[in-house]
Amino acid sequence: MKKAGTYLWIAITFLSLLSCMEDQDFNQYDDLSVTPTYEASVLYLEVPENTINDITGPDTYSQNFNFDAFSENIFADRVLEGVLTYQVENTTSKPLEIEVQFLDEAGTVLDTEQFLLDPEPTGVVIREIAYGPAGRNLDIIRNTSSLLVAATNLGDNTSTSSQPDPMVTLKSSGKFMVRIK
C-alpha cells in the first residue's frame, strides 16, 4: 500500500508539472520598451529689489550657470521628449526683462527664452516650452552645457515697491521622457 501511494504521488506531481508547462518566449525582452518620465528642478533664482537698486552703470546683470545634466550621455543619448516649465514673478517696482540662454560647451547660444515683466503688482508668469517631436529641436537640450541668465532693469534705481520683501523670482523645472530600454 505504501509503495502504491508513492507511485501515485510521483504520478500526480509529474502530471501537475506537465499541465503547467508552457513554451517560454525569451524574445519578449526585445519587444520591451521602458520610457519613464523624470522631473527635476533646473534653476531657481531670487533677486531682492535692493540688489537691483544697487546696480550702477549698465542696468543689466548676468550670471552663467554650469549645467551639464542635459549633455551627459546617460541623458542625452536617451531623452525622447520633454517640457521645461518657467515660473517668473516680479514684486519689485521696476519693469524687467529676463533672458535665459542655453549654451553649448563652446558658448554658442542654442536657444533663448525671454520674459518682459511689468512692475508690481503682477501675477506669476508660467510658460511651458516643449522639446522633441511636438516642440523645439531636442538637440538644444542634448547639447546644453550651461545656462546664462541676464536681467535688465527697464526702470530706475531708486524706487521701492510697497510689497513686503519685493524681489524677482525665476523658477524652472524639466519633465523629460527617457528611453531606458
Rank of each mutant, 00 (worst) to 15 (best):
I129T: 12
I129Q: 10
I129W: 11
I129R: 09
I129V: 15
A130Q: 11
A130R: 13
A130Y: 10
A130M: 09
A130E: 12
A130P: 06
Y131G: 01
Y131C: 01
Y131Q: 00
Y131E: 00
Y131I: 02
G132E: 01
G132N: 09
G132F: 09
G132H: 09
P133G: 06
P133N: 07
P133W: 02
A134D: 14
A134M: 14
A134E: 15
A134W: 13
A134L: 15
G135C: 02
G135A: 04
G135E: 00
G135W: 00
G135K: 02
G135L: 00
G135V: 05
R136E: 10
R136H: 10
R136D: 08
N137K: 13
N137F: 10
N137G: 11
N137S: 13
N137V: 08
L138V: 12
L138W: 07
L138H: 08
D139R: 06
D139H: 08
D139G: 05
D139P: 02
I140M: 04
I140C: 05
I140H: 01
I140N: 03
I140T: 08
I140Q: 03
I141M: 04
I141D: 00
I141R: 03
R142F: 05
R142Y: 09
R142V: 07
N143G: 03
N143M: 06
N143R: 08
N143T: 07
T144S: 01
T144D: 00
T144C: 07
T144L: 02
T144H: 06
T144R: 01
S145D: 12
S145N: 15
S145Q: 15
S146M: 02
L147Q: 00
L147P: 04
L147K: 07
L147S: 00
L148D: 00
L148T: 00
V149A: 02
V149N: 04
A150Y: 03
A151Q: 07
T152C: 04
T152F: 11
T152H: 08
T152E: 08
T152L: 05
T152G: 08
T152D: 03
N153E: 03
N153L: 03
N153F: 03
N153K: 01
L154V: 12
L154S: 10
L154T: 12
G155K: 10
G155R: 10
G155V: 09
G155W: 00
D156F: 09
D156E: 05
D156Y: 05
D156P: 02
D156N: 13
N157L: 08
N157R: 12
N157K: 12
T158V: 15
S159D: 11
S159R: 08
T160Y: 09
T160S: 15
T160P: 07
T160C: 04
S161H: 02
S161F: 05
S161Y: 00
S161P: 05
S161C: 04
S162H: 14
S162T: 15
S162P: 13
Q163E: 14
P164H: 07
P164T: 13
P164I: 11
P164Y: 10
D165E: 11
D165L: 13
D165S: 10
D165M: 11
D165R: 13
M167A: 14
V168K: 04
V168E: 01
V168W: 02
V168Y: 02
V168Q: 02
T169K: 14
T169V: 15
L170V: 12
L170Q: 03
L170G: 03
L170F: 09
L170E: 01
